[in-house]
Amino acid sequence: MNWRKSTYSDGGEGDTCVEIAALTTRIAVRDSKAPARAMLSFPAPSFAAFVEAVKRHPRPRG
């Protein structure tokens, strides 16, 4: 699997973010601080809808 870090990494060492990997029909998500632990996977259309919703309603940082 080809994992990539979120572009919204939270500063510091870049280790406070999630990583995603595109599978055939699903998107896998894991914690970048513990990559050997469990991952979650979601149907690709559901994950895309989630990302779009987050973009429309971002959570304030701080």
Rank of each mutant, 00 (worst) to 15 (best):
M1G: 07
M1Y: 07
N2D: 14
N2W: 05
W3S: 01
K5V: 00
S6P: 15
S6K: 02
T7V: 09
T7R: 13
T7H: 09
Y8N: 12
Y8R: 14
D10M: 06
D10S: 14
D10F: 07
G12K: 13
E13F: 11
G14S: 12
C17M: 08
E19T: 05
I20M: 06
I20G: 00
A21L: 03
A22D: 09
L23Q: 06
L23G: 13
L23Y: 04
T24G: 14
T24H: 14
T25F: 11
R26C: 14
R26G: 10
A28Q: 02
V29N: 06
R30V: 01
R30I: 06
R30W: 00
R30N: 02
D31A: 00
S32P: 00
S32C: 05
S32A: 06
S32T: 01
K33Q: 08
K33P: 13
K33M: 08
A34N: 09
P35R: 10
A36F: 13
A36L: 11
R37H: 10
A38S: 12
A38N: 12
L40C: 06
L40W: 04
L40P: 09
L40F: 08
P43N: 09
P43Q: 07
A44M: 07
S46E: 10
S46C: 02
F47I: 01
A48C: 07
A49G: 12
V51M: 07
V51S: 08
E52M: 12
A53N: 14
K55W: 01
R56V: 10
H57W: 11
P58T: 06
P58M: 05
R59I: 10
P60Y: 04
P60D: 13
P60T: 05
G62S: 14
G62E: 15
G62T: 15
